[in-house]
Computed example of a mutant assay.
Amino acid sequence: MSYILAIAGTDSSGGAGLTRDAATAQELGFKIKPVVTSVTVQTDKSFKDSHAVPPRVIKAQLEAALQGTKPAAVKIGMLGTAETVGTVLSSLSGYCGPVILDPVLKSSSGGTLFSGRDIYRLFAIITVLTPNLDEAAILTNRAKATDEDEIKKQAEMLLAQGAAAVLIKGGHADGFDCVDHAFSPDHHVRLVAPRLTQTKRGTGCTLATAIACNLASGHRLSEACRLAKDYVHKWLQC
């Protein structure tokens, strides 16, 4: 069985982070090799604390995980510190497969996990960036988008910063439909599904890991994103 390299934090509630990465990958036919960047203390409703793993330990984890068979894809979630960004960047410099970056800046249970600074350094090696509307606003230093024109402007800014593709998620918007917007320099694809009343923690982790699995399975990026959105939509209804 092929594996996904998952670089992210732990979540003591079990709702997000590496726990969700592992569950998603297993359902889609992959194992993960986990690299822990931070240990967070969370419940389903509150964020209490986080503790960054030292860069030397992250580097050692990455070196061990990358030995032998190369991962079919890499999913990057919570990073936490600028030093971690640099460690991940240098460790993945020789990797040529798909890399999905979910820019985890805030916890859905509350609490800031990363300021967003320095994350741009990773844009040079990623296949797709997957911010929600709040994260896209933070990364572009603009107000949260409330219409498609503003979403497009923010996506163009992120592409100009070096991201090869951007998927801006619409789960934090309003309206009957939940619309995600996939952008590359010459394409814009709208991914539409009925908005659900059900909510769960870890949707961003789940989506990014599903995209990684779909790309590892050979799907083109737009199809990988569509299938991942369908997967999350069904998971939310369970």
Rank of each mutant, 00 (worst) to 15 (best):
T10H: 15
D11W: 14
S13L: 15
S13I: 14
S13A: 15
G15L: 12
G15C: 12
A16H: 15
G17W: 12
T19I: 10
R20W: 07
D21I: 12
T24Y: 03
L28W: 06
V36F: 04
V36G: 03
V41T: 13
V41K: 08
Q42P: 12
Q42M: 12
T43K: 02
K45F: 00
S50L: 15
V53F: 09
P54D: 13
P54M: 13
I58N: 09
I58K: 08
K59L: 11
L62E: 07
E63W: 02
K70A: 11
A72D: 01
A73Q: 07
A73W: 07
K75R: 02
K75I: 03
K75A: 03
I76H: 02
M78C: 02
L79M: 11
T84A: 10
V85C: 02
G86W: 10
G86M: 08
V88W: 03
V88Q: 04
L92E: 01
G94Y: 08
V99K: 11
P103Y: 08
V104S: 11
L105E: 05
S107P: 08
S107L: 10
S109T: 14
G111A: 11
G111L: 14
F114V: 00
D118C: 06
I119W: 00
L122N: 05
A124V: 12
A124R: 14
I125G: 01
